[in-house]
Write a protein that binds this DNA or RNA. Structure first.
Length: 502
RNA sequence: GGUCCUUUGGCCGAGUGGCUCAGGCAAAGCUCUGCAAAAGCUUCUACAGCGGUUCGAAUCCGCUAGGGACCUCCA
């Protein structure tokens, strides 16, 4: 089976065929760096990180572009106050780029925590003002945009007459056009009055005097509309037509719909072959989002400092939590669910470490053919599952099926000759590839320094001596106090003792 | 008001026409152990309701009910 991707545009799973054989161009909508990232933001970046890793595993050379939205159209934190006190000295004033830098750094830090591979190109909106202006000019030249009071709007009605506007988001044109006739009319947007139709969207916005972020343009000082940056940067780095465009489902409309319209006019071709949208993370069944006032920031998640959290959670736990469901399903957050993931990922990771340590003997013939076949099947399915629109949940389920086998091999509950050495080696290889290379998981142990290793070795020896002398008071004391310190001792079947951090 | 999606066992979550079965967490029993922990084995609770299509439906269709998303910034 070859890779199939669910295309939001056609609402079907389709065979993935890159435009340029062997190469993939992928654009993912990045963060708006006007505030701290929260758990909801983690989902697309983890999801598309796995997509990126899997395509790479499939021997495809991927150019992965993920933008940083740092321009104009967002309300910077503290803006309101700033607007009122513009008489301050330069250094006392709020410098927008300072905020942008702060939240960009924080975002990069979070991505690192999650083990997300850096994109090939991470362009910023402010760094591509010229490209955006050029694109707007071209759209005006072709008669699909108009200028009004220093702002430029895209003419949706004109575009829709000859194009499929609304197809991606499943919108009905009549509903969008002349929306004022609707009962629940749109909320007041800036400049609503100067648009020819309320469905038109801004390509360039004239900046009021107090607006801090502003650039010169043929239409006066202002800042770019939200949608144009992605079109401009995607075109610049991936060409007029590229393979995959990803983002959250909530961006389908109006953002991605507008991207299609802009690029189609400017480049005379629809920009994207496969549209991929991840679903939302919910909390108590409701989408996590700023406007719902129910966000859990990533820093809070990692520290456990939030009323809804009973404990801190490791980034790998969160990553695993995301991978345990399919990216197109909503995923409901709760401290309980995350705690379950924490235990699960720990168990899986320990099985993985155990597997790596199993000695590969020269066993050509499996004595338990049924088991050997079962394992081979489980391993073979891993790629099939990923090929079926990145079904990471099924891959994990199969890995869990193998965990008891691995543990039993270690404890000799299953004799080592039961499976062939080829199968064992394949198991080692596949686990490594899927857990580390594709899922991007890593161990959660910290502070595993050489010094600690030696100290632990010493304690284990002392305890062993006590046990031999049947001095269980001493041996239990060591174990109990270590447990209180967060170190768990395990007496193995072969008489040795292992330990790990809780 | 419009458009679309969703409802799976105590919890989280795969699954889309048939086969013994997702998986994880929790719970119970047993084995191992000086005792634990870990591990292993076993058990357990499901497809919102009603109707239809079909030899056969959690899976397809219809209705009812609940939940949600988008239509406005949003991952």
């Amino acid at each position: 089976m070859a890779l199939h991707i669910y295309n939001s545009y056609t609402r079907k799973k389709e065979l993935f065929a890159p435009i340029t054989p062997g190469h993939v161009g992928m654009y993912v909508c990045g963060p708006t760096v006007s505030g701290e990232s929260h758990l909801g933001h983690a989902r697309p970046y983890v999801t598309f990180d796995v997509v990126y890793r899997y395509l790479t595993f499939k021997k495809l050379k991927v150019r992965y572009v993920r933008n940083i939205t740092d321009a104009g159209h967002f309300e910077e934190e503290g803006r309101e106050a700033e607007d009122k006190v513009s008489t301050k000295a330069q250094l006392e004033k709020l410098e927008p780029m300072e905020l942008v830098q702060k939240y960009t750094n924080l975002f990069h830090w979070a991505m690192k925590q999650f083990n997300c591979i850096e994109p090939s190109i991470e362009p910023t909106a402010t760094g591509h003002i010229v490209e955006q202006i050029n694109m707007i000019e071209e759209i005006i030249r072709q008669g699909y945009a108009y200028e009004k009071n220093g702002s430029v709007y895209f003419d949706v009605k004109k575009y829709a007459a000859a194009h499929d506007y609304g197809k991606l988001s499943g919108r009905i044109l009549e509903d969008l056009l002349d929306a004022e006739s609707r009962e629940n009319s749109v909320r007041e947007l800036d400049g609503q009055q100067e648009k020819r139709d309320s469905a038109d969207f801004a390509l360039w916005k004239s900046a009021p005097p107090e607006h801090i972020m502003r650039w010169k343009s043929p239409w006066g000082e202002g800042f770019p509309g939200w949608h144009i940056e992605c079109s401009a940067m995607a075109t610049k780095y991936l060409g007029t037509k590229f393979d995959i465009h990803g983002g959250g489902m909530d961006l389908q409309f109006p953002h991605h719909e507008s991207e299609i319209a802009q690029s189609t006019i400017c480049n005379h071709t629809s920009p994207v072959n496969y549209w991929m949208h991840n679903n939302m993370i919910t909390i108590n069944g409701r989408k996590m989002g700023k406007s719902y006032n129910n966000v859990i920031k990533l820093t809070e998640l990692f520290s456990g400092e939030h009323p809804l959290l009973t404990q801190p959670f490791h980034p790998m736990t969160v990553r695993f939590f995301i991978l345990q469901s399919h990216y197109r399903s909503t995923l409901d957050f709760s401290s309980e669910a995350l705690a379950a993931s924490e235990k699960a990922v720990k168990r899986l990771w320990e099985a993985y470490n155990t597997l790596l340590k199993l000695p590969v003997t020269d066993n050509k013939q499996a004595s338990d053919v049924a088991l050997d076949e079962k394992i081979t099947n489980w391993l073979g399915e891993l790629e099939e599952f990923m090929d079926d629109d990145f079904n990471s949940a099924k891959v994990l389920a199969n890995l869990f099926e193998m965990a008891p086998v691995i543990n039993s091999l270690k404890d000799r509950l299953i004799p080592s000759e039961s499976i062939s050495s080829a199968t064992l080696q394949m198991m080692k290889d596949k686990w490594k590839v899927f857990l580390e290379d594709i899922f991007g998981l890593s161990g959660v142990e910290e502070g595993n320094s050489e010094l600690l290793q030696s100290v632990m070795q010493l304690l284990i020896e002392i305890r062993k001596e006590a046990k031999t002398k049947k001095d269980f008071a001493t041996s239990d004391k060591i174990r109990k106090q270590l447990t209180e310190l967060g170190i768990l001792l395990k007496d193995e079947k072969d008489g040795s003792t292992s330990w790990n951090l809780d």
